[in-house]
Design a protein around this nucleic acid. Structure first.
Ligand SMILES: [Mn+2]
Ligand SMILES: [Mn+2]
Ligand SMILES: [Zn+2]
Ligand SMILES: [Zn+2]
Lengths: 136, 136
DNA sequence: AATCCACTTGCAACAGAGTTGCAAAATATT
DNA sequence: AATATTTTGCAACTCTGTTGCAAGTGGATT
């Protein structure tokens, strides 16, 4: 529980129960979560809007990152300490078509690609869909 | 105009003005389009619902494919003839942070990645964000 | 411990995205 | 021209996300 306060403080955020609970949910469930997932997990405790704002704040501060999806945005914890300034990722995301879970594969990096002349890359997002180990 | 009928017929679809217009819009604008983009382009001509259904039909028939985005789904033409059965892509998508356009880079393929044991990949989606040639 | 200010929350209201059922209209076939 | 089948528009709805504002809370300072 003190772990959570530390993380929040480390990102210049006030400790509130909503932020603790959202952060805690990301830590315990280990997969990528949508706003709806959080709303389901935290139930009636908080207003929808508050959860939206918490996600937005966490995004800006570099606590979570967006995970692209073909049916709605999800979010996942930033493992390597991102901050408000530096907020970059190059790991792969895997979505299982069976169980529906999306996970960061932290130790698998997106291979470099040689873009055509004139393109300047800043950010990479690779989503692989298929069957996860649990479901195959 | 006959080109459009051919394409539709080739995918076992009846020729309707909405389908022609949507297809035509994808062909003339060459970038990825959201439902809202099409609604804007086709104005008052068609009901929102009809455009949604047209997109859904085109998706199923392999005329267009989804383009993942961090702020809402887009769609783009399938270049190599996809069909209802086979619907696969391995090209890269580039989104420009300046002009907001997202484009298929057809001749640039997603490099192979060695997934950990137990993962079975079926589908790849790589979005690179940065600055496009026009905007740099 | 009480005060204070900035930040955060809940509520209400809204805008946008996407879906469903159904009757009317359009398409392709005979 | 008549028909069977598909497609469209409309209405109604759900789900997602945003904004303004007043009330409530966190944390620093006294
Ligand atoms: Mn991730
Ligand atoms: Mn594409
Ligand atoms: Zn699975
Ligand atoms: Zn651009």
């Amino acid at each position: 529980m003190d772990q959570l306060r530390e993380t929040l403080k480390g990102h210049q955020l006030r400790t509130t129960t909503c932020r603790e609970d959202v952060l805690s949910t990301f830590i315990t469930k280990k997969n990528a979560l949508s706003h709806g997932d959080l709303e389901g997990a935290l139930g009636e405790n908080y207003d929808r809007v508050t959860i939206y704002r918490t996600l937005k704040t966490f995004l800006e501060k570099g606590i979570i990152h967006k995970v692209l999806d073909d049916e709605g945005l999800r979010y996942a914890l930033c493992s390597h300490s991102c901050s408000e300034e530096k907020h970059q990722h190059d790991h792969i995301h895997f979505k299982c078509s069976e169980c529906g879970e999306t996970n960061c594969i932290e130790n698998l990096h997106i291979p470099a690609v040689q873009l055509p002349m004139g393109y300047q890359a800043q950010n990479f997002n690779l989503l692989i869909q298929g069957t996860c180990p649990k479901c195959s």
